[in-house]
Design a protein around this nucleic acid. Sequence first.
DNA 1: TGCAACTCCGTACGGCGTACGTAGATTGGG
DNA 2: CCCAATCTACGTACGCCGTACGGAGTTGCA
Lengths: 270, 270
Amino acid sequence: MASHRSSMGDPTRTLELLWRDSLPVKAQRGPKQALTVTAVVAAAVALADAEGLDAVTMRALAGKLGIAPMALYTYVPGRAELIDVMLDTLYAGMARRKPKGRDWRSRLEAVAHDNRALFHEHPWLAEVSTTRPPLGPGQLAKYEYELQALEGEGLDDVEQDAALMFVLGFVESSARAAADQRAARLESQMSDGAWWEANAPLLTRMFDPERYPIASRVGSAAGAAHGAAYNPDHAYAFGLERILDGLSVLMERPRTPRAPARKTARKRGG
Amino acid sequence: MASHRSSMGDPTRTLELLWRDSLPVKAQRGPKQALTVTAVVAAAVALADAEGLDAVTMRALAGKLGIAPMALYTYVPGRAELIDVMLDTLYAGMARRKPKGRDWRSRLEAVAHDNRALFHEHPWLAEVSTTRPPLGPGQLAKYEYELQALEGEGLDDVEQDAALMFVLGFVESSARAAADQRAARLESQMSDGAWWEANAPLLTRMFDPERYPIASRVGSAAGAAHGAAYNPDHAYAFGLERILDGLSVLMERPRTPRAPARKTARKRGG
DNA sequence: TGCAACTCCGTACGGCGTACGTAGATTGGG
DNA sequence: CCCAATCTACGTACGCCGTACGGAGTTGCA
């Protein structure tokens, strides 16, 4: 249950699953299937939304669908592949509003916010990797859409890819931090305040301000400002601002007369 | 096995474990323990280094230590707490070379590199959260040390904390991406090249360059430049540069005459 | 000396993903 | 039209996991 994501066994099988709608139906000899892969995935997403990814066990999912646990394996090769498809399905469903943005900065900000919203809607996403998602139709469409935000702004192709991955990685990272905090709070059954109250005796004894002067000062200030040891919203806002500033340095660098940045055309991968 | 990290049950118990060395020994009535918590944790770290975090099962760890599985529970309340202590132990052991850095930029770069090195030495770290680590002595010392890199550079206390978390989050995020790629490669038993070759027929049929012009161009260029769909080292180098640029915008902003940034002094947390 | 407190650990429970084999439904080919 | 091939559905079982529980042995203090 610890490592999600697939690419196990026959890797082509996962791809066929992801692209199932664009693939020619293969001749079926036996009885028709009672459900569809899409229905199974939808149920899995609903279950994960409601109770978290750990609740998506093959047995529980089968129960929700009214079939026997092992019947799931006629739709999906295993749990890891199921999660792959869940992820790509979510990507495929993301709203792609016209990149209305005036400047690249607000366009990229919108991309970040959209991704953040996805994590907010489906908190279990923080538990899967997403950085190197399976090459499904959803992921591909998302990649194309999001690259538009950076198109024609003086970055070469490699930089465009790197910049997008950079932003997406940040959003994932902050979403994960937020999810961690939420989980810790739920698990420990107590508010940040209660936790602090319970552990203050021990901690104040250990936390020697003379030995840790900066940590003491900065930690106190941050705690006071956020009302907690960590504030995901503030961290996101702060980080995104820094990231956009950092990218703007790259954008506004003196540029060569600039023949289109197209580089070699070898197919991706290798 | 999916959610690591603790704070379950009695939260004070975890703290007592973390600070065990600074705490007064409590009178022991029964027989002496054959091992120490520190030895157990060291064995667990060694096992995780060698075979990954999933290999650190209570049974396997007990086997390595020559004790019965259930005997572990006399040292540690459970697996989650064990992982907490493993993490803090690693933090405590990080080399803290004098912040020799001339300017804040190279100091912060060194902090990032040190953290990256830790992820490199202990790849299983990518599987635990680390963003909100337990408040142990290692974490505290690390926090103090790393804050030094940002001290006296015109950031107020809240910004100092946010900036550090921002950098550390990035390092974790890129380490995780690298680990994901490594895991995928191991699992699928094939190189990136072999994977591509096996799946090219299906993918080239799906990947319509007219429908996805930017993805096609940028993806190809990135793949060609990196020799793979993703290059963790390049992503790290690119991201860190952007981050430092972004922070420099913050540092070099016009500053108020600047009374020391010390804010309210309420204890952290709340 | 007695007993409370502690360590160690054997057994067992309830969970998980899924390998394997079978029974029954469906359908294309002769 | 029939039947062999092929597919779905699924019951059972295996080998993992973390850990609750209670008993047996050991120690230090009253």
